[in-house]
C-alpha cells in the first residue's frame, strides 16, 4: 500500500519534470524574441541584449533549463516580463481567484452529475430520463465558452440578474484581510456577508458555464453504471431480502456505481482549468488562467512556465484526491491495489 503510493508519487514527479522541460523548450523555440517583445521596437539593441542576458537567453538551452530548474525548486520562477513582478508573486495573487471558480464548478459538477444520474436511474425509460439524456448531450457537445457567451447574454443583458464581469462590484470593498485570497472565503472569515453574496454572484455564471459539460458526462456515466448494476445479482438479491427501495438505491446501488464517475470527474475538473483560459477572459475575471493567456500572447516565458507548472501540480493533486476517494469507495482498490472489474 505505502509502496504503491510512493511509486505513484514518483511517477507524478516524473510527469512534472517532463512537463517542465516540454513547456520550457516550446516557450523558447516558437518564433519571436521575448526580450524584444517585452521592451518594444523603440528600445536600443544594447538594452534588449542586456535583458536577454538577464534572462539567460544567450546561454545554451540546456544551461538555461538547469538555471530555471535550480530556481524552481526554491520556488523562484523568475520575473514576469509583463508585470515586472516575480512570477510566484503573480501566482499568489491570481491563483486564488481561479481556484474559487474551479472549486465551485467542481462542487456543482459532482453534486449535479450524481444527482441527475440518480434521478435518471430512478425514472429509467420515463420522460425524466429522456429529458436528462437530451440535456446531457447538449451539455457534452457545447464547449464552455459558448455557455459563457449565452449566459452573459441571458442573465447579464436580457434579464440582468447576475454580474458578468470581475470578481466584485465596484461599490463593494475588497475583503479587509486577505487570508486565503479567495474572496468568498475571506468575506466569510471577516464576517462580511454582503461582500460574500456579491463575490458569490460573480462566481456563478463562469463556474456554471465551466461545469456543464463535466456534469452532463458524470450524469450519463452515473446513470449507465447504476442501470447496469441494478440488473446484477447482488442488487436483485438485496431486493429479494426486502432492503427498502430507497436504501437499495442510495446505498447499495449508488456506492459500487460511483467509482467510474469519480475517475471521470477528476479528469473533468482538471479540464475546467484549461477551459477557464477562455471563460475567465470572457468574464474579465482576474484569475490565473487569464494571466496565463496574456503571458502566452506576449511570450512572457517565465510566466508561461510558471502557470503551466502550477496547473500541472494541481492536475496531479486532483488525481491523487480522486484516487483516494476511489480507494475509500472500493475495497478492492484499497486492499488489493487494483479492481478486477
Amino acid at each position: 500500500m505505502v509502496l504503491r503510493w510512493l511509486q505513484r508519487i514518483g511517477v507524478y514527479f516524473l510527469v512534472l519534470l517532463g512537463l517542465s522541460i516540454l513547456v520550457f523548450v516550446i516557450a523558447r523555440v516558437i518564433p519571436g524574441d521575448p526580450a524584444r517583445q517585452a521592451l518594444g521596437p523603440r528600445v536600443s539593441e544594447e538594452t534588449v541584449q542586456a535583458l536577454r542576458e538577464k534572462l539567460n537567453l544567450d546561454k545554451p538551452l540546456f544551461t538555461q533549463y538547469v538555471l530555471w530548474f535550480k530556481g524552481a525548486i526554491r520556488l523562484d520562477l523568475g520575473d514576469s516580463l509583463l508585470t515586472r513582478r516575480p512570477v510566484i508573486e503573480d501566482v499568489r495573487r491570481y491563483l486564488p481567484a481561479t481556484l474559487e471558480i474551479v472549486l465551485l464548478s467542481a462542487v456543482f459538477m459532482a453534486a449535479g452529475g450524481i444527482l441527475f444520474g440518480i434521478v435518471a436511474t430512478k425514472y429509467t425509460g420515463k420522460w425524466q430520463d429522456a429529458l436528462i439524456r437530451v440535456l446531457s448531450y447538449l451539455g457534452i457537445v457545447s464547449p464552455p465558452f459558448v455557455w459563457a457567451v449565452l449566459f452573459m447574454l441571458l442573465f447579464g443583458y436580457i434579464i440582468p440578474v447576475l454580474p458578468t464581469t470581475g470578481r466584485i462590484a465596484q461599490s463593494v470593498a475588497a475583503p479587509t484581510r486577505m487570508i486565503t485570497g479567495m474572496y468568498t472565503v475571506d468575506y466569510l472569515l471577516t464576517g462580511n456577508l454582503a461582500g460574500w453574496w456579491d463575490a458569490f454572484k460573480h462566481l456563478l455564471l463562469p463556474s456554471i458555464a465551466l461545469m456543464l459539460g463535466g456534469m452532463a458526462q458524470a450524469a450519463r456515466l452515473t446513470r449507465s453504471n447504476m442501470v447496469e448494476n441494478s440488473m446484477k445479482d447482488y442488487i436483485q438479491a438485496q431486493q429479494a431480502y426486502g432492503v427498502p427501495e430507497k436504501k437499495l438505491l442510495y446505498k447499495y446501488l449508488l456506492k459500487p456505481s460511483l467509482i467510474p464517475t469519480i475517475s471521470i470527474l477528476a479528469l473533468d475538473i482538471a479540464a475546467v482549468f484549461g477551459n477557464a483560459f477562455l471563460v475567465e477572459n470572457l468574464f474579465n475575471y482576474p484569475g490565473l488562467s487569464r494571466y496565463g493567456l496574456s503571458a502566452m500572447l506576449n511570450k512572457d516565458i517565465n510566466a508561461i512556465s510558471g502557470v503551466v507548472m502550477v496547473f500541472g501540480l494541481i492536475f496531479i493533486l486532483v488525481n491523487i484526491l480522486s484516487d483516494m476517494v476511489v480507494a475509500w469507495l472500493d475495497p478492492r482498490v484499497r486492499l488489493m491495489g487494483g479492481a478486477d472489474v
Binding site: 446484477k232 447482488y234 442488487i235 438485496q238 478492492r332
Partner: peptide, 9 residues
C-alpha cells in the same frame, strides 16, 4: 461471485 455486493463487508 455475483450475488454479494462487492463494496460492502
Amino acid at each position: 461471485t455475483m450475488s454479494l455486493n462487492p463494496v460492502f463487508t
